[in-house]
Structures are given as structure tokens and as C-alpha cells.
Computed example of a mutant assay.
Amino acid sequence: MSGKRLTLPRPRIGLGLAALGRPGYINLGHGEDMPDGRDVEAMRAHCHAMLDTAWQRGIRYVDAARSYGRAEAFLGDWLAERADEQRPAVGSKWGYTYTAGWRVDADVHEVKEHSRAVLDRQWGETLEALGFPPVLYQIHSATLDSGVLDNAAVLERLGELRDQGVAIGLTTSGPAQAETLARAMEVEIEGRPLFDAVQATANLFEPSVLGQLEKASEAGMAVIIKEAVANGRLTARNDRPKDAPALQTLDAVAGRHGVGRDALAIGWLLDHPFVDMVLSGAGNAEQLGSNLRALDITLAPPDREALAALAERPESYWSTRGGLDWN
């Protein structure tokens, strides 16, 4: 990946902590992945076990965020017990505040605010939780309507962090991801592009941002993919009747490669050479092992043709995602 302003470690699969730092998430069947006890200590132990497994399986990049419950604190505790050479690279995010109070049935799980005050507060919280600066610090779910890409005070502070050696990125969500990324690519501080990386939602059901991601890669940004298995819709857990025809196609191709739906979905993303990293949102060791089989997949032209037919209209995909239950 020559020319990138940020070099991410190999392999090209990292571990995301969105489902491991809090008791509730929107992944299909998420509750089945969690320990019997959902108290903080049980979740901490489960998260640490997953981090141990990820390291043993070769994963060298971990993704967290202030809004992922206690994910940063769990990760910081785990890192503190390891030597420097035994630590993965860490990326984190600011802009959402966790508000669920460790409840799965909370009315509001997280609150978004892209202000300078929140950036300053959460940067300090991230440093305290991790014990050192993350390699990559990202605006969490930047959108055009949030105004963050035009907020001079925020951009100036992010430029200061960049000058201190922290790579700066943004994550994107929603049907307008491509437009948001295109705007972000125009942002410069002191004559240099501000953003070193983008983390976008892309998968077989929602590939609409891939063209803009390729342009971002060509411009020197590292490209990270989240929600590669569409919050469980591209896994064996999906029994939604509306998805049955697409899953039949997915199963046929996966069967030819001797892998599960999840590995094929991730392997399809890795088939795009401009993708630097795909995040696994695995909730247990078995899922992580299955995800990692994606590294061994080589797709043929007929595979790509069959899988291309699974794409949904972005508006439809995001409407479905918005209706998934916290569990």
C-alpha cells in the first residue's frame, strides 16, 4: 500500500470492540456471544479473553471508541499488562458519548456531539483509559449535516494532534458516506490534508461507498472497513425471510470455497486491493476464527459476478439497519 500516510499492520483483519465493551449491541444474536454474567467484571474478562485470542491468532490492530461502553478501559487494562512489543496498534474515536448506563433496554445508548468541548474532553478520557495516545484518532460517524468538517475549532485541534504524531481519521455511516468522504478529502490544515484514514461501512449488501474509498486510497488515505458482515445479516445467524434469496447465493459461493458466510463476506472486501483493513466484530473466539478464514480466499470472476448481485439500494440497507434491535 505505497503512498499511504498511515501504514496499518498486517494481517488485513483487525478486531473491533463495538460488541465487546458493553452488554448490548445491534448485531443479530449478540446476546448469545456474551458471558452468562453481564456485569462489568464478567464483560471485562470476556473482552480480555477475546484480545488474548486475537493476538494469538496474529491480529495486530484493535479498534475502540469512547461510546463503546468500557471498551477503552478494558483495552487499557489489558495493554498495561503487556510489554510494548506485545501490544497491537490501537485506533479510537471521539464524538459519541455512551449513555446506556450498562443497560440493554436503555432508551438512548449513545449521544452524538461533534464539538470542540467534546473533542477536548474525550481526548483526555482516551489518554487516561489507554495509558498512551492511539495510533489513529477518528471523528466518530462524521456527516455533512453535523457540521464537523466545517468546524474550524475542531479541525484546528485535530491538526495539532496530527502534528504531535497522531494519525487523524474519520468514520462514516449512512447513504451519504461517499459525499462525506469527498468533502473530508478537501480539508487541509497548514497546507496538508488533515485526514490520514477513513473507516467506512461497506459490505456485500451496501457497496456504494467503495468507488469513493478507492479515490481516497489513491489520494494517500488508509482505508478501513467496518460492519463487513452487516451486523450479522451476512452470517449464519440471519434467518430473515427477506434475505433468503441473497443468502442462497452467498451460501453457494461460500460452499465452493469451503468457508462460512462471514468469511466470504470479509474475503470479498479483501479482494479490493485498496482496502487496508477489515474489522472483525466477532463476539467470541469461534466467530473470530471463522472470520480469519477470509485471509485464505481467492475469488474467481464468476464469484465476483454472483456476489455483485447482492447489493441493495443504500436507502433500503440503512433503513433495515436502523430497525435492528439492541440485544
Rank of each mutant, 00 (worst) to 15 (best):
D150L: 01
E125D: 13
V187Y: 08
D120Q: 14
A263S: 04
I168G: 01
E305W: 05
G31W: 12
R66F: 07
I189S: 12
R103H: 12
L79S: 09
L17E: 09
V253Q: 12
R240K: 03
D145S: 14
N27P: 00
L136W: 05
G131D: 11
P301A: 05
G91N: 13
T143L: 15
A294D: 05
A45K: 06
A311S: 07
G24F: 12
M50W: 12
V275P: 02
A42F: 00
H30G: 01
P245H: 06
E305V: 04
E179V: 11
G258C: 13
A197P: 04
V166E: 13
A54V: 11
N284F: 10
M50P: 10
L158A: 07
R304S: 12
I297A: 02
A182K: 00
D105M: 03
L158H: 02
W55G: 08
R70E: 15
R82H: 10
V154G: 01
R5F: 02
D243Y: 04
A176L: 09
R240Q: 10
N238G: 07
A100P: 12
G69R: 05
K112T: 00
T99V: 15
R12V: 07
G191S: 03
R233M: 03
V154R: 08
R103M: 02
T298H: 04
R66A: 15
A285I: 10
R321T: 11
A54T: 12
P207R: 07
S146A: 12
M221C: 06
E72L: 06
D84H: 08
L270I: 02
D120A: 07
A285Y: 13
D107I: 14
V229N: 13
I13H: 09
F74I: 09
A200L: 11
G169D: 12
A49N: 06
K93F: 05
E128Y: 07
A19I: 06
D105K: 01
L181P: 01
G174A: 10
G3K: 14
V275A: 05
W318Y: 15
A254G: 10
A89I: 07
R321D: 06
N231Q: 08
M277N: 13
G232D: 02
L210T: 09
P88I: 09
D251N: 09
Y61Q: 08
Y68C: 04
E206F: 12
P314A: 03
A282W: 00
Q86I: 04
H109T: 15
M34T: 13
P207S: 03
P11E: 11
A129D: 12
H46F: 01
S217V: 04
G165Y: 05
T99I: 12
R60T: 04
R66T: 15
L264N: 11
I224F: 04
V104M: 09
L130P: 00
V278E: 06
A83P: 10
I59E: 03
Q138I: 08
A89M: 13
A309L: 10
V154M: 00
Q212E: 13
N203G: 10
A178N: 00
P314V: 04
F195I: 10
R103C: 14
G16W: 01
A265G: 02
G16R: 00
L119I: 14
G260A: 02
V111P: 03
Q56A: 10
V209R: 00
V154K: 04
G260F: 02
L269F: 03
E110V: 13
